[in-house]
Structures are given as structure tokens and as C-alpha cells.
Design a protein around this nucleic acid. Structure first.
Lengths: 164, 164
DNA sequence: GAATTTACGTCAGCCTTGTTGACATTCCAA
DNA sequence: TTGGAATGTCAACAAGGCTGACGTAAATTC
């Protein structure tokens, strides 16, 4: 209800009203964000869950099932259903871990990489258009706010290796 | 594959790699964005779909079912399932339209407003923390990029009345 | 005044993607 | 050698999307 009143340098950007706008921006933008890949996926027999798996396998080839589980934040049963169809359709292959043979290291096949490219091309195109329209300064702010919005655990996943 | 090489003033922020980072930022941040309300919702018999309906009914009291349908982008069958439980539980009430009696104008009840407050308080708290950590400049950029990422139709919903 | 369109509701059935719980296998590590 | 980790799998269920078809009341148009 009550908002801390603006003090010193304008804190007007922390108004409930401003925050509500931010919330809606996330909602509407996320829809746009997923719209293009969704269009590609429909018709194929895949959904967003497949897209996410493919994305992260591509990002980190050789990651294990548990890695992926932690990133996606779903149950193994749920992930397994998705992975099974990706194996069956020859988009993803699993290689037994070298040091630990229990692990299944996940990789995209040629075919899988092809779909990944199609999906991320579509998604990047929208992202690129938005970035270009907004400019580098805005993009910097965009990234900063999103990062601050993540759960700490997810932020770690996000930051991983490369600092930026 | 090939990215337009940096020309004149640095276009490095449009690299495929930078775009991928942006994509993942959206993914991870959206999870944080929904986490707090989700926690409140679970246990009650509601889900994200109920939250969305409640949010927009609160934002625009008296909006019609078709309005809400357009904003949420779901089918009426899907929305109806949600609205029915909200009616039954006395969180939302429908008033017959004054000029057009076919319309059902949606309003939150006291009880509905209570839940709305709980949900948006939680969501705003995270938003506020992120905004505060990032600063007004970054927030401005955040909003700019998100707006550019929306489908035009959604952008119209987003901008509606108040210019900012 | 009759016909059409609009706003809304509802029944039935389907799909994806999430969940829990239980159980088996393989293999690393203490 | 034994416990725990990494993984798979079966079964059942729920939320929340979807389509198609049909119904009704009120507004609009001819």
C-alpha cells in the first residue's frame, strides 16, 4: 500500500505503479519471446520443453542429466519423457561418461543441431531487433535488471564460465 | 551463423553470443519473476492462470470477458474454467453490462482484492529489490528492451492509457 | 419484425508438461 | 563391501492449454 516516499534523488521509479508496469512488461514480453520458436515447434511433435532441453544441450555439450535437471528445475521423470523422444528421433545422443560410467553425457546430433539453429535463429532475430531498437545502453540495463531478478541459484547457472 | 561485423560505433552488443545471453537471462529471470506468487498460489487451489486473471481484473475493473480473453491470449473455454472457480470461491464477481446486457463486467470482491494484494506484494517485492539494485538508468533500459520485444498487439495492451 | 451477429457459457475430449511415489540398475567411493 | 549417487522407468494424476460443437440472450442490421 504505502510506498517509501521519494527521497533525495528521485525514487519515483520504485513506485507501486512503476513496478506494476514492470511486471506487465515481463508478462507481455515473455509471450513475444517464446512466440517464434513455438511456431516452429508446433507441427513438429515438440513443445517448449524440448526447446529448452535442446538449447542447454547445445550451450554445454556433454552435460549430464543431473546438470540439465538442475538447470531446468523439473523432475527427472518429466525431463526423461522429453529426452526419450529426442533420443528416439535422433536429435540428441548420450555418451557414457569417461570417468564416471553412470553419467550420460548429452550431445546434439547433426539433426539436433539443425533444429537448434532453426529455433535459436528465430528467437535471436526478435532479440536482435529489440536490442537494435533499444540501443546498447538499454540492453545493458535490461541485462542488469534481469540478473537482479533471478534466484541466486539461477544466477549462478546464468553466469557460469564467461563473466559476461 | 555469420553476424554483421562491428561497424563504426561498436555493435558488439548484437553478437550471437550476446543475444544468447539475453535469451538465457529472460529464461532464468522469468523463473524468478513467477516464483514468489507461485509459492502463495500452491496450497490454495489456484495456479498461474488464476493469478493472471486476477491481476488484469484488478488492473482494469469492469473489463469484459472478451477484453480479458484478448489480453491473456487463451481460449474462452480455458479462461472460463478459471473464472468459474474464481466466481465459485467469491473472489471475482460479474455485473451485467449497463449499455450492453450481454457483457459481464468483471470485478474483484473484497476477498479477491485481498488475494491480489498478497500476490502482487510478493511479486513487487522482488521487482523492487531488482530495480533498486539496478538503478533507474538500468530500469529504463529494461523497460525499453522488453517493450521492443513484444508483439505489436501486446504492446498496445501494455501501453493502453497511461503513456508511461 | 425477422434474420443475423455478438457475447458468453458449456459439454466432451485431447495434448503437453508438470507432479508424486515406488522400484531397479549400475557404479563410485569410503 | 556397502551405502549412496546417477540414472531409467512404470503408474497415476493435475493444471492448463487446445479444438469442435452447441445453446442462449441480447444487440444490430436488413
Amino acid at each position: 500500500m504505502a510506498e517509501t516516499p521519494p527521497s533525495g534523488e528521485s525514487l519515483l521509479y520504485l513506485t507501486d505503479e512503476q513496478l506494476r508496469k514492470g511486471i506487465e512488461a515481463m508478462f507481455f514480453a515473455y509471450r513475444g519471446f517464446t512466440a517464434d520458436p513455438d511456431r516452429i515447434l508446433e507441427g513438429l511433435d515438440y513443445g517448449r520443453a524440448h526447446h529448452r532441453a535442446i538449447h542447454f544441450i547445445n550451450r554445454t555439450p556433454g552435460l549430464t542429466v543431473s546438470n540439465l535437471l538442475a538447470i531446468l528445475g523439473v523432475t527427472k521423470q518429466s525431463l526423461n519423457r522429453v529426452l526419450r523422444t529426442l533420443f528416439d528421433d535422433g536429435l540428441v545422443e548420450a555418451r557414457v561418461g569417461k570417468t564416471d560410467k553412470r553419467e550420460r553425457r548429452l550431445h546434439l546430433t547433426e539433426k539436433g543441431a539443425g533444429l537448434e539453429r532453426a529455433l535459436s535463429d528465430a528467437q535471436r532475430a526478435r532479440m536482435r531487433a529489440a536490442y537494435r531498437a533499444a540501443g546498447p545502453q538499454a540492453v545493458q540495463g535490461f541485462r542488469t535488471v534481469l540478473e537482479a531478478m533471478m534466484d541466486p541459484e539461477m544466477r549462478r547457472q546464468y553466469l557460469r564460465e564467461e563473466g559476461q
